[in-house]
Simulated assay, not measured.
Amino acid sequence: MSAAPPSATTSSQQTSGAARLLQRQLKEINTANDLSGISVGLLREANVFEWEVSLMINDDCKYYGGAIFRAHMTFPPEYPLLPPKVVFQSPVPFHPNVYPSGELCISILHAPGEDRYGYESAAERWSPVQTPETILLSVISLFSEPNEDSPANLDAAKLLRAQREGRDREFAKRVRKCVRESLGDD
């Protein structure tokens, strides 16, 4: 019987370690008392690397109060060395930091290291100290305070700026429509 190549063994050990970490983190989120508005579970029982997330955006949020958005959070086998990906499912929030495809754009989910464009410092990007909990709390915060300086959805960023300057209310109209859709009212 031949032994597996060293790289295959290391890769499977890394994946196994990541799976154990994710199982623990999923359990911690589901038993935390201070995470109101966040619900997580496995997308498929046999795969701890794919989570289904529901975010209930509270009424105090000036842009998305009362909405419920679903997303998939996909973790790479190299987790926690590399970040997960968060993709909103239909309806996709109309938000400056969410691509029309639903993929979330937030600094803490960008690969670790220096930004080749010089926009973000390495300290703003992914670090293994981040957890699914800190990511989801950051996402909730992003609904209260979108980052229009680095938009994934240029139209949403332009309309938000126009609204903040008192020139237009189209952003609010699009957000209200999105909230209704998230609640199944549209």
Rank of each mutant, 00 (worst) to 15 (best):
M1E: 15
A3G: 13
P5Q: 08
P5Y: 04
P6D: 02
P6W: 02
P6H: 05
T9G: 07
T9L: 13
T9M: 05
T9S: 10
T10I: 09
S12T: 15
Q13D: 07
T15A: 11
S16V: 01
A18N: 04
A19G: 08
A19H: 08
R20D: 09
L21P: 06
L21C: 08
L21D: 14
Q23R: 12
L26D: 12
K27C: 08
E28H: 07
E28F: 00
I29W: 04
N30R: 14
T31F: 13
N33H: 14
I38N: 13
I38V: 15
V40Q: 14
G41K: 15
L42W: 10
L43M: 12
L43P: 13
R44D: 11
R44W: 11
E45M: 03
E45D: 15
N47P: 14
V48P: 15
F49W: 05
W51Y: 11
E52Q: 10
S54A: 05
S54V: 10
M56Y: 15
I57T: 04
I57F: 00
N58H: 13
D60G: 14
C61D: 14
C61F: 00
K62R: 15
G65W: 02
A67N: 05
F69Q: 07
R70N: 14
R70P: 06
A71K: 02
M73L: 15
T74P: 05
T74L: 11
P77V: 10
E78F: 04
E78C: 00
E78M: 02
Y79L: 09
P80L: 04
P80C: 01
L82R: 15
P83R: 02
P84V: 08
V86A: 00
V87N: 04
F88M: 11
Q89E: 06
V92W: 02
H95A: 01
N97S: 07
V98W: 08
V98N: 07
Y99L: 01
Y99H: 01
P100G: 01
P100F: 02
S101I: 01
L104D: 10
C105R: 09
C105D: 12
C105P: 12
I106E: 06
I106K: 11
I106H: 05
I108E: 04
H110M: 09
A111M: 03
A111W: 08
P112G: 09
G113Q: 13
G113Y: 13
E114R: 01
D115A: 12
R116K: 10
Y117M: 07
Y117G: 09
Y119Q: 14
W126F: 04
S127W: 09
Q130A: 01
T131H: 09
E133K: 14
E133V: 02
L136E: 04
L136D: 07
S138G: 03
S138F: 10
S138H: 08
S138C: 03
I140E: 13
S141G: 15
L142P: 06
F143E: 06
F143G: 11
S144C: 06
P146L: 02
P146I: 02
E148I: 12
S150F: 08
D155A: 02
A156R: 01
L160V: 12
R164Q: 14
R164G: 04
D168W: 00
K173V: 02
K177Q: 14
S182E: 03
G184H: 05
D185R: 12
D185Q: 13
D186K: 00
D186H: 02
